[in-house]
């Protein structure tokens, strides 16, 4: 065989799948987003009408706001907790580090659908253990209607998402902590710095790049939130936990409004691809 064709022989099978199932779909999404199409018949070119309609549609803006709240809430809750857990596991004072690392990582391998089943029951209004514990601790006097309220529904989903997100954030913080040169702390000890000073002037600045990386990765991850609210509340009550993905899903697959659904895909793609690009840039600089 001609030598020139050898690399092509190795590359072609992958490229065929890549073109059919990645490149064509993404271009197709862009194409559909500027057309009106119900699954059959001709494509009607409508320019940016679909995009304008997304922002005019109250349900879409609700879904967008919900997604921002749930993604933001998850980040706000899980970033500090995962940093604290990483500090705890990294501390020389803690015995059985390996054991705790494994236990803390466990939620990461659990299927989202399984978490959905567990937390549907754990956060049950009348019989849920969570309400029972909160009441016995005297934190609440009446049961929280987790899945019957759009406020508590979002909060419940933030709690579940945090349980899922903390493990991977913690592992990255741990890597960041372990990469800080010991000499920095030794030098600080010689200068008589206390624990708080060492944390503020060494640990925090040294962790900044990894924190930014975690922040972006989690944002990309959080904006794709779908499974948990879809299973537990199905976006309700009154769209209180509707996510942008579920909005896209029902527009496309239930209503066959493929133009509208694709416009949502495109918005999501552009937003998240820019974030991922920034992340890769940061990653390659460090």
């Amino acid at each position: 065989m001609n030598k020139k064709y050898v690399p092509l022989m190795f590359l072609t099978p992958f490229l065929i799948f890549y073109i059919i199932f990645l490149l064509i779909p993404i271009f197709y999404a862009f194409f559909l987003s500027v057309h009106n199409w119900q699954g059959i018949g001709p494509f009607n070119f409508v320019a940016f009408e679909n995009f304008i309609n997304i922002f005019k549609d109250e349900v879409a803006t609700t879904a967008l706001i919900n997604t921002f709240i749930m993604a933001g809430g998850t980040l706000a809750l899980s970033l500090p907790i995962s940093l604290l857990l990483a500090l705890l596991i990294n501390s020389e004072l803690l015995p059985f580090k390996g054991f705790f690392r494994v236990v803390y990582f466990m939620p990461r391998v659990i299927a989202l659908s399984v978490s959905g089943v567990i937390f549907l029951i754990l956060l049950h209004t009348d019989y849920g253990v969570f309400n029972y514990i909160l009441r016995n601790l005297g934190l609440i006097s009446e049961n929280i209607p987790w899945w019957q309220s759009s406020f508590y529904g979002k909060l419940g989903i933030i709690l579940i998402r945090s349980w899922i997100s903390i493990p991977f954030m913690m592992i990255y913080f741990l890597t960041g902590l372990q990469n800080i040169p010991v000499e920095l702390y030794e030098a600080a000890n010689i200068d008589g710095a206390n624990l708080m000073q060492k944390f503020t002037f060494i640990t925090v600045p040294m962790l900044k790049p990894i924190a930014l990386f975690i922040f972006i990765t989690s944002t990309v991850f959080s904006f794709q939130i779908f499974t948990i609210p879809y299973m537990i509340t199905n976006g309700g009550p009154s769209n209180g936990t509707l996510t942008i993905i579920q909005y896209m899903f029902s527009r496309g697959l239930n209503n066959f409004e493929f133009g509208m659904a694709s416009a949502v895909s495109v918005v999501l793609f552009v937003f998240l691809a820019v974030l991922s690009y920034i992340q890769i840039k940061i990653g390659s600089n460090n």
Binding site: F21, L22, L23, G252
Partner: peptide
């Protein structure tokens, strides 16, 4: 081989695509 760099860049660019954005067109494909 010729075009190696471009092919590699295109493949890496695929890492930027969030799967959820592909659901609708992938369903149609």
């Amino acid at each position: 081989f010729r075009g190696k760099k471009i092919i590699f860049s295109i493949i890496i660019a695929g890492m930027l695509i969030p799967f959820q954005a592909l659901i609708i067109p992938l369903f149609l494909v």
